[in-house]
Design a protein around this nucleic acid. Sequence first.
DNA 1: TTGTACGCGTTATCAA
DNA 2: TTGATAACGCGTACAA
Lengths: 346, 346
Amino acid sequence: MGQDGRHRRARSTITDVAKAARVHPSTVSRALSAQPGHILRPETRARVVAAADRLGYRPSALARSLRLRRTLTLGMLVPDIANTFLAGIIKGAEEAAHERGYALVLCNTGDLPEREATYIRVLREREVDGVLVASTRMADATVDGMRADRFPFVLVNRGAGGTDDLVVTVDNIAAAAAVVDHLVSLGHTRIAHVAGPRSTTTGAERAAGVVAAARRHGVHAEIVEAETWSEAEGYRAASQLFRGEPPTAAFGANDLLALGVLRAAREAGLAVPADLALAGFNDTPEAVLADLTTIHVAQEEMGAHAARLLIARLEGEPIAERNVVLAAALVVRGSTAAGIVRRRIA
Amino acid sequence: MGQDGRHRRARSTITDVAKAARVHPSTVSRALSAQPGHILRPETRARVVAAADRLGYRPSALARSLRLRRTLTLGMLVPDIANTFLAGIIKGAEEAAHERGYALVLCNTGDLPEREATYIRVLREREVDGVLVASTRMADATVDGMRADRFPFVLVNRGAGGTDDLVVTVDNIAAAAAVVDHLVSLGHTRIAHVAGPRSTTTGAERAAGVVAAARRHGVHAEIVEAETWSEAEGYRAASQLFRGEPPTAAFGANDLLALGVLRAAREAGLAVPADLALAGFNDTPEAVLADLTTIHVAQEEMGAHAARLLIARLEGEPIAERNVVLAAALVVRGSTAAGIVRRRIA
DNA sequence: TTGTACGCGTTATCAA
DNA sequence: TTGATAACGCGTACAA
């Protein structure tokens, strides 16, 4: 053992174990997989188990997958691992997957449609059993392709293209409206919304929630659109807002955008919350640090839910809801401190 | 096509393509893998390519891996995906891996030794070609096992157990010393260090750097140890510090610990930097938000470097350095603002 | 209760 | 230049 210089010593296979236990390989297979139909003499089983143990035998998932026609592996597409909101979703998905014996292959798309298409191809060549798509911008063609091939997938934090897809999202419209309700209740009537990219369902829905709520309250909502979900874009978009007479309240379509607004506000000489009430969306760690009023989303639950939904689909289990919409909660923090606003109202 | 209700239509295999192109499967294999040794008539190749195209043929990575005895897959063990520092490392690793045709299977260990052992087992059953270990607490037995089996792995941001391991780290000792140098240069003589767990090489090295630098400067360094790398533990550890006469400067072994110190300081009525200079380590987005002086580490580069190192090992390429120590840079921000300290010195 | 035979989809090797 | 054969490691009808 170990006479080979560069290569590691070969793993022992089912045949090695069979020889050691003086049985046929198929008997080893039966002894080691505790299927109900497998009846074999305890003595034989013990001999096999002992041999397997002695040789440190581990079945090859590869060979098994080839035979069983499933890999017990899920793919996951995310636009940016470093985004703390997505990290929570990934964590939840990873945990739920592993709980059911599935591994998770992660793909970071950088929100680039070409990379998404490439990754989907790679994942399918690797025969993952299904994919979780947390990517916001995916070209519809890619999703359409999966639908056409009946390839199992679940959309996470991203609207459905087709009506029949499996989807896990939050109620963006209601949540965005809740933020506006909150701001209006503090007396604000000139509210700005830094919307996410229109090309994403998430961005569109949140903006729609703002518009609807503003109309209902009869207040003015000015909407500027960010091109990406980044702090830098929030800053850029907000800078436009503060050129003329600034609004008294601003709502970023996610926390990063709100942080960008915060920076722009400071540069424009506006204090938060004294001169500008500010809210975000997602309740990321950054929101906590910046004391930001925001919408709390149960990220890990969202990821876990999506993974479980996909696995249920794969295992042919009954699916209660194809379209899961998680509730979200408003978290009020210092950035919309009522005390300050009372002064403003007075 | 599509007569099957629940299951998706079967993928076409190499045999299907062979039949369609009226050649032998092995010819299809040769036509589609552009190896130098493969000489075949352009006409034949064209016919095969056309057939493959028509059938939407994708080779099965599974079958190929079985035959080739490699999966072009890497495993990666991280203690916590949601940690922004690790997220950067993961991102860099994922990108570098995919660049060379490798996929990355992510495993979140929660820093629990049992889960690490389990995951290593799972990854090896799946026959990943190697693993990246960014986990700080891994039981030495697990690492020893991989070493004994000559199973390829690279340690990331974690000290080596064995001298011959492949390792990518930052120069923790020098960096920690640089922080102390900085604080001393501002006039501080009573410096506290909230160290990471002693059981981790990272924690131990940073503490050692602090001790060495303090001794060199002839100043007092009080060290308290956190049990985990979390904000909560930073808070708990720092609370002890502020019972008696507080230090004038504090250094958290990572940014999260420093944030915990920040919270404790505020509760104790100490303003940062007016009453307490504060520094962290890693330069995470949180450090930027909290305006924290810290050590900048090129996370993505670190992850990418580790992945490339592992792949070089796998592909038998020459390896220049087995033990890569990346430099880190001190980033001075408001939490150790010189102006404030000058007042303190005077 | 256990052994035999075969197939999962590829590719390396040898023969033609 | 192409075809035939075998093997990668496993699981499962079917036979014994």
